[in-house]
Simulated scan of single mutants.
Amino acid sequence: MDFIFIIVMGGLWGSFANVCIYRLPQDKGVVSGRSYCPKCKTQISWYDNIPILSYLFIQGKCRKCKKQISIQYLIVELLSVLSFVIAYFFYGITITTLLFIILALTFIIIFFIDLKHYIIPNGLTFPLMFIGFIKSFDPNLNELFPNYINSLIGGVFGYGIIWAIIFIYKVLRNKEGMGLGDAKLLSAIGFWFGWIAIPFVIFSSSIVALFVVLPSLLNKSKKFSSEIPFGPFIIIGCILYIIFIEQYKNLLF
């Protein structure tokens, strides 16, 4: 029963994540008003708003105007369910599971907003920083999470290193290289996982970004000066850190 409950909650919160992804960049309230078709603006009935199942049943099309609904909605809900299931599988019904669920949902929302709009809302990164730091005062949490000193150092280090990159790039090229949204996101990761996570996240996210962007550079559809959303790569780097944390620490120590 617990497993079914986790899946259902993952789908419901994934549906809420979709609302955030659509409305936050437009400065719209995420809890005001019913969901509606982005094409014809028709309100979506409850039976067409059941996470995952409704999308599959109506074949990804609005029942009213028959226009295709972005598969992103299905992907976000599936990722949310997957995140809930993985957190529950490894940590059960614990505070650690709740924290990872909060982190995962925020990461999903940031990932898709930055991917499309090239922005990372402060309304997402600031609460993430706050939670990351406050939780560090609990000595009974999973060893993945640092104490409050390492958390504070991590938050400052994460922000400072991206700020320094932005500053140096602007001095050398006289234009912005990255956004402060990336600095705040990396700072939040520092608050959550401590200063030790920052070098790994920066290195791995840069490598992933290079492999993703390299084909576009080779076929000249993008230039080195082209703007790319780096937030999704920082998130991927953080996920890789969580997966390979033991190997990383063994390498260092």
Score class of each variant (00 low, 15 high):
141 L>H: 13
172 L>I: 05
143 E>T: 06
179 G>W: 04
166 I>K: 14
164 A>H: 10
161 I>C: 00
165 I>T: 10
178 M>C: 11
151 S>C: 04
156 V>L: 14
171 V>L: 13
154 G>Q: 11
175 K>E: 06
141 L>C: 13
170 K>M: 01
167 F>M: 15
162 I>L: 13
145 F>V: 09
179 G>M: 05
144 L>A: 08
172 L>Y: 00
140 N>L: 08
147 N>H: 03
173 R>M: 01
144 L>C: 07
159 Y>D: 03
179 G>A: 03
179 G>H: 05
150 N>Y: 10
179 G>L: 04
165 I>F: 07
168 I>N: 00
149 I>K: 09
169 Y>H: 14
163 W>I: 03
150 N>M: 09
152 L>P: 10
179 G>N: 06
159 Y>Q: 07
177 G>N: 06
151 S>Q: 06
178 M>F: 14
174 N>T: 07
141 L>I: 15
148 Y>F: 14
157 F>Y: 12
148 Y>N: 15
160 G>N: 04
144 L>K: 11
152 L>D: 06
170 K>Y: 00
173 R>A: 02
156 V>T: 14
149 I>M: 06
164 A>P: 02
142 N>M: 13
164 A>C: 11
160 G>S: 03
154 G>D: 08
146 P>T: 01
142 N>D: 15
145 F>I: 15
163 W>N: 03
154 G>P: 15
154 G>H: 08
174 N>W: 05
144 L>M: 11
162 I>K: 04
150 N>I: 09
175 K>C: 02
151 S>G: 09
150 N>W: 09
143 E>Q: 04
176 E>K: 11
143 E>K: 05
154 G>E: 04
151 S>R: 07
142 N>I: 13
144 L>H: 10
163 W>C: 02
178 M>V: 14
162 I>H: 01
157 F>W: 09
142 N>C: 14
146 P>Y: 04
143 E>I: 05
151 S>L: 03
152 L>E: 06
171 V>M: 12
165 I>G: 02
177 G>Y: 09
149 I>Y: 06
151 S>N: 06
155 G>Y: 10
154 G>T: 08
170 K>C: 00
179 G>S: 05
171 V>P: 09
155 G>Q: 12
172 L>P: 02
155 G>R: 13
149 I>L: 08
156 V>M: 12
160 G>P: 07
156 V>H: 09
145 F>W: 13
147 N>G: 06
160 G>H: 02
159 Y>S: 04
177 G>T: 08
157 F>T: 13
159 Y>P: 14
176 E>F: 05
179 G>F: 03
171 V>K: 15
147 N>V: 05
152 L>C: 07
144 L>N: 11
140 N>T: 12
171 V>G: 05
174 N>A: 05
170 K>Q: 05
146 P>C: 02
167 F>R: 15
166 I>H: 10
159 Y>M: 11
147 N>W: 01
169 Y>C: 10
178 M>L: 15
177 G>L: 04
171 V>C: 09
176 E>C: 07
144 L>G: 08
148 Y>L: 08
153 I>N: 00
161 I>Y: 00
155 G>A: 10
165 I>N: 05
173 R>W: 02
157 F>C: 08
155 G>M: 12
156 V>P: 09
154 G>R: 15
179 G>C: 01
166 I>W: 10
150 N>H: 12
163 W>F: 10
146 P>H: 02
173 R>H: 05
145 F>M: 07
153 I>D: 00
